[in-house]
Simulated scan of single mutants.
Amino acid sequence: MAAIAWLVIPVASAVAAAIWAGWATRTKKTGDVAELAGYARFREAMERSHSRSGAA
């Protein structure tokens, strides 16, 4: 039984390392969509504030 335990420990560690490596190198799907949309809203707001301040 002790020999099986010594065999299971490295095998389980290798499986855990493979799962972690797959998770760590996954493709992230969030992208920059939210950041770009926020920047576009910021630019629009700045353009509106500058056009109003120029008229005053």
Rank of each mutant, 00 (worst) to 15 (best):
R26Y: 07
G54L: 02
L36S: 09
W23V: 08
S13N: 04
R41P: 01
L36Q: 12
S53D: 14
A2M: 02
I9M: 04
A24E: 11
L7V: 03
A37S: 13
E47I: 05
G22D: 10
W20A: 15
A18H: 01
V33F: 06
L36K: 11
L7I: 01
A17E: 07
V8D: 08
I19A: 15
A18G: 12
V15N: 00
R41T: 07
A56C: 13
I4M: 07
S51C: 05
E47M: 10
A12D: 00
R48M: 07
Y39A: 11
A37H: 09
D32G: 09
E47V: 04
I19S: 09
A5M: 07
M46F: 06
E47W: 06
T27Q: 13
H50Q: 14
A40P: 00
A34H: 04
G31S: 12
A56T: 09
A5P: 00
M1N: 08
K29I: 14
R52C: 08
S51E: 15
E47Q: 12
G54A: 05
A34W: 01
I19R: 06
M1H: 04
R43L: 15
R41G: 12
F42D: 13
R52F: 11
E44N: 13
W6F: 02
W6S: 09
E35L: 03
G38C: 03
R48P: 00
A14V: 05
F42K: 10
H50I: 08
I9H: 01
R41F: 02
Y39G: 05
